[in-house]
Design a protein around this nucleic acid. Structure first.
Length: 338
DNA sequence: CTCATTTGACCTCG
DNA sequence: CGAGGTCAAATGAG
């Protein structure tokens, strides 16, 4: 009596569902890339179609992330709870320390805890002596004190997470070396259509005790207001292009990037921002052979790590590798199931 | 008023 | 159980 438990069927369906979602997502993404080509840029209908495709992509991505959330437990498993407990107590968890037995640790916070640590995501790390703006819009969602580290680690996710279902995240931490370095670790790749500007590097001139370092490099024509930079705070681009996470169903800012930058640039956020190998060199860092490569450029160290876990057969890591077919993913050699 | 950041609780993994 | 990662209410900035 163990052959066909309903839960297993559920799992099987789940896998299928995930596969279908992945396929749909990939297809939509290819379409997006096609529509995004300069040749089609002037076509009005293409632009409209591109917009639609973006929405489809966002839906797919979100669906995928939802499905991907609970690998073991049923998706529908529980917790109506909800506000049923009446008094939402505006302070949620903070000020209700006065008994309030409802805090049975479980069944309290509806769906808190769906997060799961990623094991098989590809990450790339770069260490720079200063803050780097990679051309994407990030939103800070957390900060954590790390053991053995003097400085806290900051957590960012793509501003378009809900917007377009982009699951890219990054962590920034200041190393405790003598010359403090900013170590940025990227997780996942961007699926958002976010070509807000050519990448640039901003050097933090506010670092005390180092004036020789104060240079301001900027690649591209966009002039960014170098807003205040704190030691612990990462530089945030206050671009007009980013903003509201939940974009209105109507038209959103159309990326009218008819410049020398083709669509592919936006996926290359971790490569193209460094002029060193910008122009034509594809990607020296991410040769698919090495699991871990380091490249030292004039201003920092960049490394990419593609971790592959074999025994992790269940947690479909559809980390939105999406950009299959273009270039991006092929470089990463993504471990799609095995 | 809206939206981004702060910050402590919550949750999972090793 | 501790460390690391994420969530979301509260707060602050524009």
């Amino acid at each position: 009596m163990d052959s066909s438990s309903p839960s297993e069927n559920l799992l099987g369906d789940r896998e299928k569902l995930i596969q279908l979602l992945v396929q749909g997502h990939e297809s939509a993404n290819k379409l997006r890339l096609t529509l995004g080509k300069p040749s089609a840029a002037d076509d009005k209908s293409s632009v409209a179609a591109l917009d639609l495709v973006k929405k489809v992509l966002g839906s797919f991505a979100e669906s995928m992330s939802i499905v991907n959330r609970r690998p073991t437990e049923g998706v529908f498993d529980k917790v109506p709870a909800n506000t049923g407990g009446n008094s939402p107590s505006s302070n949620g968890r903070k000020a209700d320390d006065s008994e309030e037995s409802s805090k049975s640790t479980s069944a309290f916070k509806e769906r808190r805890g769906s997060y799961k640590r990623r094991k098989t995501t590809q990450t790339s790390t770069r260490t720079t002596p200063n803050l780097v703006d990679d051309g994407h819009a990030w939103r800070k969602y957390g900060q954590k004190v790390i053991l053995n580290a003097k400085h806290p680690r900051n957590y960012y996710r793509c501003t378009h997470k809900f917007d377009q279902g982009c699951l890219a995240t990054k962590q920034v931490q200041i190393t405790e070396e003598d010359p403090p370095m900013y170590r940025t670790t990227y997780h996942g790749s961007h699926t958002c259509q976010n070509l807000l500007k050519p990448p640039q590097i901003i050097l933090d001139s506010t670092i005390p005790g180092d004036s020789s370092n104060s240079v301001f490099l900027s690649f591209g024509s966009t002039n960014y207001p170098s807003t205040k930079l704190n030691h612990e705070t990462y530089y945030y681009p206050t671009s007009p292009l980013v903003k509201r996470e939940y974009s209105p169903p109507t038209q959103e800012l159309k990326p009218s990037f008819n410049h020398n930058q083709s669509t592919s640039t936006d996926h290359l956020f971790l490569l193209s921002d460094f002029t060193d190998f910008n122009s034509s060199v594809p990607m020296p860092v991410l040769s698919s052979e090495s699991d871990h490569g380091d490249v030292i450029s004039s201003s920092g160290v960049y490394s990419c790590t593609t971790s592959t876990t074999h025994d992790d057969s269940h947690s479909f890591d559809l980390d939105m590798l999406v950009d299959v077919g273009d270039l991006d993913v092929s470089q990463f050699e993504y471990p799609l199931d095995n």
